[in-house]
Simulated assay, not measured.
Amino acid sequence: MRLKDKVIIVTGSTTGIGRAIAKKAVSEGAKVVVHGLEEDLGAQVVLELGEENAVLLIEDISDDGAPDRLVELAIRKWGRLDSVVNNAAIVAASTITDTDKDFISRILGVNTIAPCLLIQAALPYLIESRGAVLNIGSINAWGGEHNLLAYSISKGALMTMTRNLGDSLFREKGVRVNQINPGWVLTENEVARKKTHGLSDDWHENLPKVYAPAGRLIYAEEIAVAVVYWLSDESGPISGQVVDLEQYPMIGRNVPKDANTIPHK
């Protein structure tokens, strides 16, 4: 097993990509701190994983002291910490005309500042274990869509933090920091969000090839499989890297002029 006996914090793991990561990590031998906002869903995840393999904290990651409480829970339960997966995020639409100070502060607080503070809180234990951090970004970090301004800014900042810490922490402390940027992933939250935009229940079954050359979106479980590599010893000394996980090249892509498109995010 590729993560045998490693203790991993996965934020935002009561649903979606985070839940898939937690489940895959345990299947590879890890112990996981499950975190999120939905107590009933979190309890279900822990039940599925087994109480010997998982422990739950329900709290907004941007609350004062929340990162410290996550770390303390891992240490209290298993006595060590090997990895942090910064997955929790708010995905919310905004443009230059409707992004006010409170809104962008909230997005940055959860998507960018909280991951930095969690790394800070975990650092003494990650140094001891020569551990790893994996930040879950987004292909929107490279610029983003016009109606995802604040979200794109937050993921771009996260990417810069990954590059910065991936160099300094590994060089000085032996802690690796990397990032993956998922593209469009089919999760229960994404299905529900698109329905609020007026799309039909089966919107994801007939996607334009411009957005899904495979004829479908990426599955959360496929992202989770990739995560294992970055948390395992197989990735060796690789640090400070950002890898896009999408069906097509995000930068330099040729979009057909006659593409039958629907809103991406």
Rank of each mutant, 00 (worst) to 15 (best):
K101W: 11
D100A: 01
I9G: 06
I262F: 04
K265L: 08
G42F: 03
S152T: 06
V228G: 06
R106G: 00
L37C: 01
A92D: 15
G50D: 09
E221H: 00
S13F: 03
L123V: 04
E234Q: 12
L70P: 09
L186D: 14
A66M: 05
V177S: 09
E221I: 00
A88H: 10
G12N: 11
I9L: 09
S83W: 03
V225N: 12
A226E: 11
T196A: 01
E28Q: 14
Y125L: 06
R193F: 12
I90V: 12
A114N: 05
A132G: 13
R19G: 04
K31V: 01
R19V: 03
A224C: 08
E28M: 04
I153N: 00
H204Q: 13
G240A: 08
V210I: 11
V10E: 11
L126C: 10
P213S: 03
G137K: 06
W78Y: 13
K257M: 14
V32T: 07
S13Q: 09
V225K: 15
P249H: 10
L186F: 11
D233V: 06
A89E: 12
W203T: 01
I223K: 03
A43Q: 13
T15C: 02
L56W: 02
V84P: 06
L149F: 14
I136S: 11
P67N: 06
E38M: 00
K195S: 02
A66C: 12
I238K: 07
E205M: 12
G144M: 03
D82L: 10
A92V: 08
A224Q: 04
V175Q: 08
V45W: 03
D202A: 12
E190T: 14
W142T: 06
S27L: 10
I96R: 08
Q247W: 05
G12D: 08
V191H: 05
I104V: 14
A114L: 04
S154Y: 02
Y229E: 12
S154R: 04
I107V: 14
P115R: 08
A192W: 05
G131T: 08
A226H: 11
E59G: 04
E38L: 04
S152Q: 06
R193H: 11
V7T: 14
M161N: 07
A114R: 05
N87F: 10
H264C: 02
K194T: 04
D40Y: 01
E128G: 02
G144E: 02
N181D: 13
I251L: 15
Q44N: 14
H264L: 13
G50S: 07
P208A: 09
K24E: 15
E48V: 00
R19D: 00
T15F: 06
P213I: 04
H35V: 05
E128Y: 04
V243L: 15
E52S: 15
T99R: 01
K23N: 14
G215D: 08
K77H: 12
N254T: 13
V71H: 02
L56F: 00
V243W: 09
R19L: 04
I251P: 07
I21Y: 11
D167N: 13
S168W: 08
E51P: 07
S239K: 01
R106K: 13
S235I: 13
T187S: 13
A54T: 07
G131W: 03
G12E: 09
A220F: 01
R106H: 07
D102F: 00
K173L: 11
D102M: 00
R216V: 00
L47Y: 10
E188F: 00
K6N: 12
